[in-house]
Design a protein around this nucleic acid. Structure first.
Lengths: 158, 158
DNA sequence: AGGAATCTCTACTGATACTGTCAAGAATAA
DNA sequence: TTATTCTTGACAGTATCAGTAGAGATTCCT
């Protein structure tokens, strides 16, 4: 019942980007250093976040990643969803989307008193995560007095 | 972020016991047959539930398991907690209980904006699970028209 | 044009936890 | 005394997680 590190790292990394946001894209090596996340692993996570449309990237020198939307429009739910794949406490709920393609994953489908419980729990958790945005985290960071790191690339211009 | 089968099976089994409750203890073989759970595996789960004080047992012929409390006093949270061990979305919260013994599991402990989010999410989920009792599930079962199986052991007395 | 920086894609791997199975033993009722 | 049922601990296959690795593509700078 634990969130994977992809979710935890993903949220931390996205917060880090929003918190230290500058004019240039943020780079893996900086984020991974500040958040103490393996850079190669973070690459993978960022690919997931990019596929989900939360990040855009630019290659080459001075390249990196940037948020596709303002921090107040990106919620924890979106990040967790992108990293985790889905936000369901159990698998036996799946298999009855609109198209009704897949077979029910559980033999007791629709004859099970626990199914609605897991459904509702998943929904409640998702709603909470959807109520928190990256901007909220940034404000929290301010209150906690976290230091904003100067972008070292600006040094060139001084 | 999935619940383990121990939790799912555990809740189903506990519901089954409450729903088919008779005067005699419920036996593994009956529950596992009705709920289609491996009997050997269910034994293990029941040991966990017994350690948590949710079940009591009696060996020998006509033995089995019974709930230690009325169905309306047993919540989903207790069962999940017993099966899952804990109800925390992340590990980085642990390590600062009242005794303050264990070291913080996370290097960013108390310097992390995401920690409160995972904490709150865990709490919200736990609160929801605590709001649902076995009795609620039984009523749901009634509404769904689930059939109550006659205890075959009563046959002897007819 | 060339070289360096940075992201991209895919594959691989070691450890861990999950999901059971199994066997021998202890208690209890008939 | 015997059949039944729970008790305890060990064991094993599989999947997932978490991270590493290498070769390639794109972009910028000179």
């Amino acid at each position: 019942m634990k969130l994977s590190t992809k979710s935890r790292y993903g949220v931390r990394a996205m917060f880090d980007m929003a918190f230290h946001a500058g004019t240039l894209p943020a780079q893996i090596k900086d984020i991974s250093r500040r958040q103490n996340i393996s850079p190669r692993y973070l690459e993978q996570i960022f690919q997931d976040l990019k596929k989900a449309g939360l990040l855009k990237s630019r290659r080459g020198p001075q390249g990196g990643y940037s948020l596709t939307r303002p921090a107040e429009e990106i919620t924890i739910k979106e990040i967790v969803l992108a990293a985790e794949g889905e936000l369901l406490l159990v698998d036996c709920i799946k298999g009855r989307r609109k198209d009704g393609e897949a077979a029910p994953a559980c033999e007791f489908d629709n004859q099970c008193v626990t199914q609605p419980i897991w459904n509702e729990g998943s929904r409640i958790l998702g709603d909470y995560f959807a109520s928190v945005s990256l901007k909220d985290l940034c404000e929290q960071g301010q209150e906690m007095g976290l230091e904003k790191e100067l972008d070292h690339r600006f040094m060139y211009f001084i």
